[in-house]
Amino acid sequence: MPVFAGTELTCLRGDRLVFTGLDFRIEPGEALVLLGPNGSGKSSLLRVMAGLLKPLRGQLSWDGVAVTEDPDGHRSRIHYVGHLDAVKPVLSAVENLAFWATLGGAADPRANAHAALDRLGVPHIANVPGRYLSAGQKRRLNLARVIAAPAALWLLDEPTVALDRAAIALFEEIIAEHRAGGGMVAVSTHVDIAMPGARDLHLDDFTPVPHDEDETEHEDVEGEDAA
């Protein structure tokens, strides 16, 4: 079974170290929840996982093979949902979705797009141009993208922003189905998303300690690293 893992990851944004010495591991059917205050590097870690951002140190591996050796293969097995919804204002919801489904390798993108919109409870927006969609509808449309084409690993950056309770419940079901089918999920969130058996990763544990801190503090952090 494939395992997605990262070892000793260090991320630099501008001239600030965001996190260092970070290890993670996701097995099929598992979910990893990234927790931490604003600026602790949740989004950066997801971008590193997606391959959008190169880590300063450390490496990602899929089934023991370094991701850098097979970047095309890695891109074909991930879905990334970021803060931006990538919805074109002049295309209808289903056209928007069908385009991404085609790029994702779906056999029948249009049918998949309709099915995905149904699944997220918004079949009525199918023919509405993107510019008339509300923030929540755009978000649902963006999330529909992950089920419109198959991929093993979902990287979701605050997927519940702008969603109502009903949509969050629907999305919890979708994640549960994906995991039941052997899929993997990494999600950053400030809201509670019910994901039974999900593993938590506290990013503030990996925030680098400034050099002028005293020695005891340093050991403390390293102790948590190992755990």
């Binding site: 997606a50 391959g51 959008l52 095309d72 891109r75 074909s76 991930i78 990334y80 970021g82 803060h83 931006l84 919804d85 990538a86 919805v87 074109k88 991404w100 790029l103 994702g104 390798g105």
Partner: peptide, 15 residues
């Protein structure tokens, strides 16, 4: 670039 499509295009299997 502004609406995030470029990010997704760069993550697609299309070079």
């Amino acid at each position: 670039y502004e609406d995030g499509s470029l990010e997704l295009l760069s993550l697609s299997t299309l070079p």
